[in-house]
Each structure stands twice: as structure tokens, then as C-alpha cells.
Nucleic acid binder design. Structure first.
Length: 480
RNA sequence: CGGGGCGUGGCUCAGCCCGGUAGAGCACCGCGUUUGGGACGCGGGGGUCGUGGGUUCAAAUCCCUCCGCCCCGACCA
């Protein structure tokens, strides 16, 4: 394998990203299906680990999993005005089946608010049926014009939660609970990716929502990646689909609904937050293989001794560590070192004849690439040491990402400063402009308001664009 | 969807301008020597040159169609 298989970030950030996806064997562009990818074994293993962590949190907050159909009657999509406008351009339709034209075409779900709304209207009768708290794990399709593996593909995999509540306060509480207890908690604790929790502006909110909340992360090129959204849909979908209930006073009321989702895009966020020019870097909690063992030997005698030592060493790992012993006989150790580095395995243990003699192993950590991250440690107490190191790396990656974001963030008070700051990262600014102002800024700077952070300053300042006095602080950035 | 670039063994590409026997490196298979940071020798297998059409005695090469990919913009989880 050529040494220059991965373009450096400095040379071409986009190409670097594509190289990582390919070299780490996460996914492949499915050339025969426009805009789609094949998620390969390693990529899917990461997604499964993500799913498990998210699913635990979704259930811990009282939700149950269900599955709705892939196909949605086209008329359903048309029922909520803003929703139609938002999604119409990117839906794929099924117009023929069973060898005949369908009387009503189906769309392949771009999201399931409408079909779920239809069924909720049949299921909900009384306030006693509320709240209704369901989630589904599925694939969806949006016919995107420009696609990139994980970040934007025509088909992607996600979870979409859909809940119905008796009143606005309950729906709002649900929306925020998901944002904090499920999404932000998962992304920061498990992915080691720091996020800003915020509210979307009118311009950026979900089509059909009353309010959209989001978590925004900063990638290593300073651009923002929306990593999760949670929407308070108000009564918009309830009205479009007649989702009503009878309250304690025997009055018929429209429900308040929410929807929220995170997708395989998170894998893109993971790559672009932690990885380096050597390859993928995975936080230990999401690494399908946390420790790889590379045995080193020159002949069969050495092989036997070394493999016996490896067997003893790893005996207590089962169930405590996700590990693999790389006993492939046709590749040199050096090749394996590089391969596992490219694939982002957090820790590598090398066991050779000298180690067997000295009771040591060589231990390399991925967040410090090359020989620098390598040291010799005693075999005694190795398991505990590995577990400690994994925990330490998890924290170190988060801290490193946090420091990077801080370094690339700045408060700006003039439009000129804003223009300059969005070239390198997040620009925090007081804001009291209109949707039109926001569009104009996007035209001029290619940056948008990523969110209105939930933590707002107590002081007032002057709007970076209009100069009006305001207490509202927003974050501008270029985004994926 | 606009502008630009590109489709040739699995991968990266040469060949195309100027039509005439499909090539290289890496990867793969076999044997042997190797193995603590991307090993080496010898032998071997593998390509309807993206698709469809046209021109020609003859097309990877020239012309048209469609499909796909990459980059830059506009739109989006």
C-alpha cells in the first residue's frame, strides 16, 4: 500500500475525508445507485455501537421502538404546507408496482411525520393515551444533488422519534429532554465530540416545525456540522392529520407533537472531529476493536512461544475489552502497525520474543501516532492498564476537540470581524436581524446562523448587523 | 441544477492529440527466503477500454447519446 494513500488535511480537506472513509474501510460509494453508499463492516460496526448507546438512552427516557412503512402515500406529504415545500424537491416516488401504474403514487419516506401522524390520529382518543412516545430505527431517502459519504447521501440510516402530548409545555419538555439527555449526552460522552446546544432560527428550522433545537459540532476545518435535531412540531401536524384527544373536561383538543433524529451523519462528525493525517481516530467507546494485538516472531519456535504468551495475556480480556489478535501470517508487523493505525484502533499491543523474555509488551496509543505514542510496559497488570488508558483517551479526545473549538471560536462585534471569523471557525455575535438580513449575510459570507445557543449572556450588546441593542447571542459559521 | 475535470485489470494511472498486437506500478495467486514501523526473489492469473449508437477495411483512440464519479457554486439531516 502506498504511503501517501491519505491526502493531508492541509493539502485538501475534502479529499482527506474521502481518503479516510476509503482507507479505513468504512464505506464505499455505490456507483450503481446514484448518491448512495454501501456501509462496510467497520462502518456499520461503529453505527451499531452508536445505535446501542442511543437506543439505551431513548428507552431510558420512556420511549418504545416501532416500525412504520417505507412507502408513504404521496397525498400525505402534501398535507402540511411548510412540510411539502421543504421536502417536495427531494422525494423519490414509486409510480409503478406489480407491473401496473399505481392509482396513487407512493413516496419513499424522506422522514415519517406524515404517515405516523395518520396512524397517531387513529390511535389517540383520550388524554389517557398521552403522551405517546415512539421511536423507529430505519433508512430514509432524500434525493440530494451533491452527496458525500455519511455527511449527505440519498439514502441514510437514522432513528426518528415521534411523540404526541396533551399540551405545549409537555411537548417542549420532551423536545428539550431529547436534546440534552439523549443527543448531547451521547455525542459528548460517547463520541467525545463537544456540541453547542441551541435553537434554530426561523430560516433554518425543520419544515413544519414550531421550533427546532439542535446540537452543532465544529469540524477540523472550522465548519459546523449539525449533529442532531429535536423539533417541537406544535399543533401543525396534529391539525393536518387530525390528531386529537378528549381532555379531562370532555373537550376535543389537538395534540402537540414532536420529532427528533440523528443519523449516520454522526459517523462523518466522528471522522472529522478526531482523525488525523495518518488515518481514522476512534474514541474508545465507539471503537469496534479497542485493542489489537500484533504478535512478532521470526520462526515457528518463536511463533509458538509468542502465541502462548498472547493467549495468556488476552485470557482475561473477553467481555471487558473489544480486541483482536492479528495472527495473519502473510503480513509483516510493520504493515500491520500501519494498517491498524489507518483504521483507528485506539490501542496496539505488540508481543515479541524479547517481550516474552522480559515480561513486557510494547503499547502504542492511536491519539499519539507513530513511534512517539509507543512505550514498553510490564505484562503484569496489563488489562487494568489498558482499561485505564482507554478511559484516558476518551477524555483526551474530548478535551482536544474542545480546545480546538475554543481556539477557532471568537466573539465578533462588527460585520467585518464576522466575515473574517467565519473563514476559520465559529463567530459568536449579538443578533437582532431579520430573515432577509440572514439571507444577505449567507450570500455575502457563505455562513449561516447555526443556532441561538441555549446558554445566553445576561448582558445586552449591539447586533453585529443592524447595530440595534439586543440580548440575543447567536453562532455564525459555514456549515456542512 | 449550473460551470469545470474525468471514466482503460481490484487500485492509481500511461496509451487517445496523429485509428492498426491493450501496458506499467501496486494489489492478487504459487513457491522459497523474510518478519520489533508499510520485506524480497522467481513464476503466474486477471481488462467486452463506463453505456448505446455512428464514421471507418479497422475505434481505447474520431463524432453523438446516455450513465456515473470528482472539484467549485446554489439547496439541504
Amino acid at each position: 500500500m502506498p504511503k501517501d494513500a491519505i491526502t493531508t488535511r492541509a493539502a485538501d480537506y475534502n479529499q482527506w475525508y474521502l481518503d479516510i472513509v476509503r482507507e479505513a474501510d468504512l464505506a464505499e460509494v455505490a456507483e450503481v445507485v446514484r448518491g448512495c453508499i454501501v456501509v462496510k463492516a467497520t462502518g456499520w460496526a461503529i453505527w451499531e455501537l452508536m445505535q446501542r448507546e442511543l437506543d439505551d438512552r431513548i428507552k431510558a427516557t420512556g420511549h418504545a421502538n416501532v416500525q412504520f412503512p417505507l412507502l408513504v402515500p404521496k397525498s400525505f406529504i402534501m398535507k402540511e404546507a411548510d412540510h411539502v415545500e421543504g421536502f417536495a424537491p427531494e422525494v423519490a416516488e414509486v409510480t409503478r408496482a406489480g407491473g401496473e401504474e399505481l392509482t396513487e403514487p407512493y413516496v419513499i419516506r424522506p422522514t415519517s411525520e406524515t404517515i405516523i401522524g395518520y396512524f397517531y390520529s387513529r390511535w389517540i382518543r383520550s388524554y389517557r393515551d398521552l403522551p405517546l412516545l415512539y421511536n423507529q430505527w430505519c433508512n430514509v431517502m432524500r434525493w440530494e444533488l451533491r452527496t458525500r459519504p455519511f455527511l449527505r447521501t440519498a439514502e441514510f440510516w437514522w432513528q426518528e422519534g415521534h411523540t404526541a402530548h396533551a399540551n405545549e409545555a409537555d411537548a417542549e419538555a420532551e423536545t428539550l429532554k431529547i436534546l440534552h439527555e439523549v443527543y448531547a449526552d451521547f455525542v459528548e460522552e460517547v463520541m467525545a465530540v463537544p456540541v453547542i446546544r441551541g435553537l434554530k432560527t426561523e430560516k433554518e428550522k425543520f419544515p413544519g416545525a414550531l421550533r427546532s433545537y439542535c446540537i452543532e459540532a465544529m469540524m477540523q476545518d472550522g465548519r459546523a456540522l449539525q449533529s442532531g435535531t429535536s423539533h417541537n412540531l406544535g399543533q401543525n401536524f396534529a391539525k393536518a392529520f387530525d390528531i386529537t384527544y378528549t381532555d379531562q373536561n370532555n373537550t376535543v383538543q389537538h395534540c402537540w407533537t414532536t420529532s427528533w433524529g440523528v443519523s449516520t451523519r454522526l459517523i462523518g462528525a466522528l471522522i472529522m472531529t478526531h482523525s488525523d493525517d495518518e488515518g481514522l481516530v476512534l474514541p474508545p467507546r465507539l471503537a469496534p476493536i479497542q485493542v489489537v494485538v500484533v504478535p512478532i516472531y521470526k520462526n515457528d519456535t518463536e511463533r509458538t512461544t509468542v502465541m502462548a504468551a498472547v493467549e495468556t495475556l488476552t485470557a482475561s480480556w473477553k467481555g471487558r475489552l473489544r480486541f483482536r489478535v492479528d495472527d495473519r501470517d502473510n503480513l509483516s508487523p510493520g504493515y500491520k502497525f500501519n494498517e491498524w493505525e489507518i483504521k483507528g484502533v485506539p490501542l496496539r499491543v505488540e508481543v515479541g520474543p524479547k517481550d516474552v523474555a522480559k515480561g513486557s509488551v510494547a503499547l502504542a496509543r492511536r491519539d499519539i501516532p507513530g513511534r512517539e505514542g509507543k512505550r514498553f510496559v510490564p505484562q503484569a497488570g496489563l488489562t487494568a492498564h489498558l482499561l485505564e488508558l482507554l478511559a484516558e483517551m476518551q477524555t483526551a479526545l474530548f478535551q482536544r476537540a474542545l480546545a480546538f473549538r475554543a481556539e477557532r471560536s471568537a466573539h465578533v462585534s462588527t460585520y467585518d470581524e464576522l466575515r473574517q471569523q467565519v473563514e476559520r471557525g465559529f463567530a459568536w455575535a449579538y443578533w437582532d436581524g431579520t430573515v432577509e438580513d440572514e439571507k444577505r449575510i449567507q450570500d455575502e459570507t457563505r455562513a449561516t446562523i447555526r443556532c441561538i445557543p441555549l446558554d445566553q449572556p445576561s448582558e445586552v450588546g449591539r447586533c453585529v448587523y443592524t447595530g440595534r441593542e439586543t440580548s440575543q447571542m447567536v453562532v455564525f459559521s459555514r456549515a456542512y
